[in-house]
Design a protein around this nucleic acid. Structure first.
Lengths: 220, 220
DNA sequence: TGTAAAATTTAGTTATGCCTAAATTTTTTT
DNA sequence: AAAAAAATTTAGGCATAACTAAATTTTACA
């Protein structure tokens, strides 16, 4: 059985790999909040297990076996988030931390039962796609909110799930996945976005906007 | 934060203390499936944290602080068992293993939400009492099935939750907590019990009967 | 292109919690 | 009460996964 630490490394490598760019020792260390020297150690271990490929001073890549485990953990995480949200009514800014702990310990049986209870969902409460049991990740074609122009309307597709302060902030504007809004104004020089959400105006800073992916864009 | 291993020690000490008799290094080791030498080590650690009291070569006792943690873990375990059984429909012989892992990682928030969902229950699917949030354990006055006489009728109060083969066996006779049955015959020389459960006869061996606690006994 | 800066790896340490084997203490038996 | 048996503790190791500090390799720039 794989350790929780190892599972976290694989999950992190997957996420960083997804964002593009090479997954270096330093980037991984930063992401996992450990020192680079510690990452070197775990990399060797995972490499010896054939879960990643590694070239000294270069970076890591997941093997098929490693990717399968990463996706399994991510599936657990997102199913748990949605389950805790829907079945237990936990707030969307609280489910991430809980899922982070539970994802490593639930059985396949429990995973399957949550999946069935939820009706085989394809996205968690933050809009992130839930890989299916075969490791197939639902396709999405969402883009960062920062690429929007004045006058465009769109639907929130996905928001970063790990920053609960951000999530509470978005919640205060009713900016949940599925919510449609329209860009009223984009302040010049990388300034904030003023948007209209269900008749209410809200001002969203650049940094926040980077963490919001949107979908179904229309020019109005 | 206390390690999972330490929590398991405290929980085990509590359970062994409950059964009466001194909780010696050897008994704890046997119960936890580790070697006595390992127990000595953890005992020292828990003692230094003032969670247990210990006298060399004598045995351990929980302090109030230690007992509080033990009861918290047991509360998690039993709430989880009932939750998995009721909310996710997991079989009663499967919930123990899952709860064993989850009990160490759920938050107080999740505990409270499961508690509310379940209507503040006082017993798990195997009839074991669920301590409340203040560590108060519901009183029960059940006795081992082995103390029954021929002709007596009673209700199943509690069965050992950790032996899933036993649970499946009992399930096949519909012997769940709350089920009433009557003793038809007790074979001599420590022999098996023949009982009547809802019109069906069943033969229950001594060893199995030891793991069944009963309640509400009537002579018929 | 050579040197300084940055990134990475190696070497050695720490903490947890388990193990075995040997030493010690307690209990039981004769 | 002494000797044998049983229980417990000590001593020394192992694996995991982190850390710091020092050495090495790569990259970047002047």
């Amino acid at each position: 059985m794989l350790s929780q630490a190892a599972e976290d490394y694989l999950k992190s490598i997957y996420k960083l790999q997804e964002k593009g760019g090479k997954v270096s020792t330093g980037v991984l260390a930063e992401f996992l909040n450990v020192k680079p020297a510690s990452v070197t150690g775990m990399i060797k271990k995972l490499e010896s297990m054939k879960l990643i490929k590694y070239e000294r001073y270069q970076g890591v890549t997941l093997t098929n076996a490693g990717k399968a485990i990463a996706l399994e953990v991510i599936r657990h995480h997102r199913l748990l988030e949605l389950y805790l949200f829907k079945a237990l009514g936990m707030p969307w800014d609280g489910v991430h931390d809980e899922a982070e702990k539970l994802e490593h310990v639930i059985s396949e049986e429990m995973e399957a039962r949550m999946d069935a209870y939820l009706g085989y969902p394809t996205a968690d409460p933050h809009g992130s796609p839930i890989p299916d049991k075969n490791g197939v990740v639902p396709k999405t074609e969402s883009v960062p909110m920062t690429s929007l122009q004045e006058g465009q309307s769109c639907v929130v597709a996905e928001v970063n799930d790990s920053d609960s302060a951000l999530l509470r902030h978005l919640g205060s504007f009713n900016l949940y996945p599925g919510t449609r809004f329209r860009v009223i104004e984009v302040a010049p020089f990388e300034g904030p976005f003023t948007i209209d959400v269900a008749g209410q105006q809200a001002v969203i800073g650049r940094e926040v906007a980077k963490h919001i992916l949107v979908d179904d864009i229309h020019d109005t």
